[in-house]
Design a protein around this nucleic acid. Structure first.
Length: 276
DNA sequence: TACCAGGTGTGGC
DNA sequence: GCCACACATGGT
């Protein structure tokens, strides 16, 4: 998409493919604050402020290259939407969430965050992650906190995560942090999808759905279609097909949409959250 | 009060 | 392989 960079700011004039609300509220990201003047967004050790006014989006940061990639600005979402427009319900879904983009987030941050997300709700997920960052993340220039390095979580026991409010996921986090600190290789880009997914699912607390979210939001594997309770509702509506397992739906939709599956899923997820 | 939230691990079959 | 069930926590 078209954008300009000047004085540490990224300027986007065509907002038909960039809606801060759509991007941040489609469930892919948990580290953002909403204020009167706009949004503040944290990723790894970077942060930016995002202002939407007079038809323009301005992204202000000290790391413009990082956020060009983070917001996936080099990709043509107009083309993606055109290719999806023939699929059932997609015109309506894109009508509601046409400004969605899939962010390029840090794989380790996604692993930890989506383990926390399991059987949980978004406000609570955000709170747990914020407390994790405040407890173990590096202090940033703006007064906020970075997402902790995995090394900074080494040796912490279940009581630490339980105190953050992680509940029974505390044990998963202890085991997965240990794996990440002792040999698990998060470089999965060169692997076939099935092998990458299998490796992620070897981590405690990572089942099919969490693995697919990590693959989509941490590795931009757009052929995956994460299936949660909301997407199950949309699936039933589109195909009038009751009683299918989440894995069945994920496999079927991945094949149905091909390399557009992840994008289709995000438009449908946003639509479901707004309309079902 | 029972149910829900971007589900997973476990044990029984 | 499938299935039922337990699992912390806070909101409605």
């Amino acid at each position: 998409m078209k954008y300009e960079i000047s004085c540490g700011k990224i300027l986007i004039s065509d907002t038909s493919e960039f809606s801060p609300k759509h991007i941040l509220e489609c469930g892919q990201v948990f580290r953002y604050l909403n204020s009167i003047s706009g949004y503040k967004i944290f990723s790894k050790k970077s942060f930016c402020s995002l202002i939407y006014a007079n038809g323009y989006v301005t992204i202000d940061s000290t790391d413009t290259d990082y956020f060009v990639r983070y917001f996936d600005l080099e990709r043509d979402y107009g083309d993606i939407k055109r290719r999806l427009s023939g699929y059932p319900l997609m015109t309506e879904a894109i009508g509601y969430g046409g400004g969605v983009r899939i962010l390029n987030q840090d794989p380790r941050e996604m692993i930890i965050s989506f383990i926390i997300s399991a059987n949980n709700n978004i406000p609570r997920i955000k709170g747990i992650i914020e407390r994790l960052c405040a407890a173990r993340g590096e202090r940033l220039a703006d007064g906020g906190y970075a997402f902790p390095d995995i090394g900074a979580l080494k040796g912490l026991d279940r009581d630490f995560y339980a105190a953050l409010g992680a509940g029974y996921r505390a044990d998963y986090l202890v085991r997965t942090v240990d794996a990440l600190n002792s040999g698990f290789d998060p470089e999965l880009d060169a692997l076939p999808l099935a092998e990458a997914r299998k490796r992620l699912m070897s981590l405690s607390g990572v089942g099919r759905k969490v693995a697919d979210c990590i693959l989509l939001f941490g590795y931009h594997r757009s052929e995956v279609f994460p299936v949660d309770t909301w997407i199950e509702k949309v699936y039933r509506r589109i195909f009038s097909d009751e009683g299918r397992s989440a894995v069945y739906i994920a496999d079927k939709m991945s094949e149905y949409y091909g390399d557009l599956a992840g994008y289709a899923q995000q438009y449908l997820y946003y639509y479901a959250r707004e309309n079902i």
